[in-house]
């Protein structure tokens, strides 16, 4: 396979997403993101909208929130709680794997 014509990929976190890019990537309205950042469910707590930048972790989290809200008609707070639990489970699974313990 020739490598010269491979598509260059941009790593999120090196290049963070703006609010518009982020909303588009999550297939939601800009306002949906704004409401969840302002209520502390997303983002790093930065106060000024113009400085908001979103990471890989934010993207995974926002898509989970969206899925919970859209598929289960979950209240945003409940969706955030579910996302928190998923993140905790992911974290524990990674720790178990790093410790050499196998999951069923």
């Amino acid at each position: 396979m020739a490598e010269y014509n491979a598509i260059e990929a941009e790593v999120l976190d090196d290049a963070r997403l703006t609010l518009e890019e982020f909303a588009r990537a999550c297939a939601v309205e800009r306002q949906w993101v704004v409401e969840r950042v302002e209520s502390g469910m997303l983002g790093d707590g930065t106060r000024y909208v113009s400085k908001w930048q979103f990471t890989s972790h934010d993207l995974t989290r926002a898509r989970r929130l969206r899925q919970m809200e859209f598929d289960f008609d979950a209240e945003p707070e409940l969706a955030a709680l579910v996302a928190d639990l998923f993140e905790e489970v992911d974290h524990l699974r990674r720790r178990l794997r790093a410790a050499g313990l196998k999951l069923e």
């Binding site: 490598e3 990929a9 941009e10 790593v11 890989s56 972790h57 993207l59 992911d90």
Partner: peptide, 18 residues
């Protein structure tokens, strides 16, 4: 699509192909 996977990529990280 042939994609160049950047060195140093982490588990769970996203890469964007414009």
């Amino acid at each position: 699509l042939k994609v160049r996977i950047p060195k140093g990529i982490k588990e769970g990280q996203h890469i964007r192909l414009a």
